[in-house]
Write a protein that binds this DNA or RNA. Structure first.
Lengths: 244, 244
DNA sequence: TCATGTGAAGCAGTTCACAGCG
DNA sequence: CGCTGTGAACTGCTTCACATGA
């Protein structure tokens, strides 16, 4: 039977769930990210008072591809008007609801060190659709403090507080060796979406999606670019490595 | 000639440079990111005292694909020994030098707010190959302060300090509306690699590579996952969107 | 024999070119 | 007309399967 490498472990962990977790005609994460970009572009157009836009104009103004915009959007419905283009406001609101950004989601922050504190105060994480509702830290000295309006708790309180505040997302900003434990805790608390900034890749499961964001990878990429003198480096658009 | 959308603007901006910037057989950023992952896995094996490893074992232990590991590595030479595998230490050092991580690079930090301060103290940004050597902020009150050992300067001092400290990389952690100006300043100072954390996508050019890391995109992705109930969401591995 | 390195096959994501509709 | 929506072509990445060489 030659080699065939390895059967590429069809999603491990969680006992015996009957499928892969990705159903139907799954949306590629690349498409998903572009939808975010489109939405932001539309918001800028709205700020400028524009009411209608064609895929062409979106493309040339924001350095995107017109045909790709159309393909991406067509995947979710017919949002445009032939011969005219897209209504900026309508399309923005469609994308918003598609991405689930049309409502507020409560987030908890695990690890309130330098990076965690910065996230707690980071406008993009506390404006619009996302709201950090509580922080947790292993250091008992931090218990009872607040960052802005965000109360800091001990890790033991995580399950109770997370449930009480109906947190849906957890942001992990703990040291690498504490990441696995932190994930286990938030999972126990019923959190199903995790953004992991610890320099340790954590496994994503269908039941608890983990997005690993390793800031070092970006530096390595720039380093390679510098090393190679700018040649032999393909153009951008890159992963922030997530788990299998 | 029907439509053909738009000729996808063959790299605009900078006057008339004669080529794209990516030459020869350019390395895909996806490959590049995986090399980082391999390197980290190898480092873990070294910590454990392992001296040799096969692509199979690397794959199964770190949730990677064996054939892909081989393909990726083969692109840069023959690092393995047939019938045996790879020497952990040798391969790690090859990857290190390939990625340009075998020497220290000086970085400057533009914007010393919450996020900037966190980066200044962030171990991954100040250990090994990368070293923040100075910070800059538009707020004159911050001038003369230090974060750890890192001195904070006013923005005007950027060109002089950056050159004096031989900075190669700039990290932008400024508000969105200050990002374009910040990029212009670091570019003027001769910096050719930029990591942009501002929530504004900046254009990358062959002469000054910009990597945009928009943290909001990751949240939007998780939001979509939550919204869709976990189905119709493909598996991970995703872009942190860079410019065109 | 065992595991690498590699053409060939397969799959995914992007671009093209045009049919269809306002 | 003009611009969307979309099959078809294309490009590039991943996986397979095996020849090669220690």
């Amino acid at each position: 039977m030659s080699e065939s490498d390895v059967p590429r472990a069809g999603r491990r962990s969680a006992s015996g769930e009957e499928s892969t977790g990705a159903r139907r005609d799954a949306v590629s994460p690349l498409t998903l990210n572009r939808l975010s970009v489109y939405l932001r572009s539309l918001q800028e157009l709205m700020d400028r008072g524009e009411t209608s836009v064609s895929s062409q104009r979106l493309a040339s103004e924001f350095h995107l591809s017109a045909s790709q915009i159309r393909k991406d959007l067509a995947q979710f419905g017919e949002f445009g008007v032939r011969g005219v283009g897209y209504d900026v406001e309508i399309l923005a609101s469609k994308l918003s609801s598609l991405l689930g950004l049309d409502r507020v989601r409560a987030m908890i922050l695990v690890g309130v060190g330098n990076l965690g504190t910065a996230f707690a105060r980071y406008p993009a994480f506390n404006r619009g659709s996302f709201q950090v509702v509580a922080g947790f830290d292993a250091d008992p000295a931090k218990r009872g403090r607040t960052i802005g309006r965000i109360p800091i708790h001990s890790l033991d309180e995580l399950p109770a507080v997370a449930r009480e505040k109906k947190a849906e997302i957890a942001i992990l900003a703990v040291p690498g060796d504490a990441a696995a434990d932190a994930l286990e805790r938030v999972r126990q608390a019923g959190i199903t979406a995790v953004l992991n900034f610890a320099p340790t890749s954590l496994p994503s499961t269908p039941a608890c999606r983990v997005k690993n964001v390793d800031l070092r990878i970006h530096l390595a990429e720039l380093s390679f670019f510098l090393e190679s003198g700018g040649d032999e480096y393909a153009e951008d658009q890159t992963p922030a490595r997530s788990a299998s």
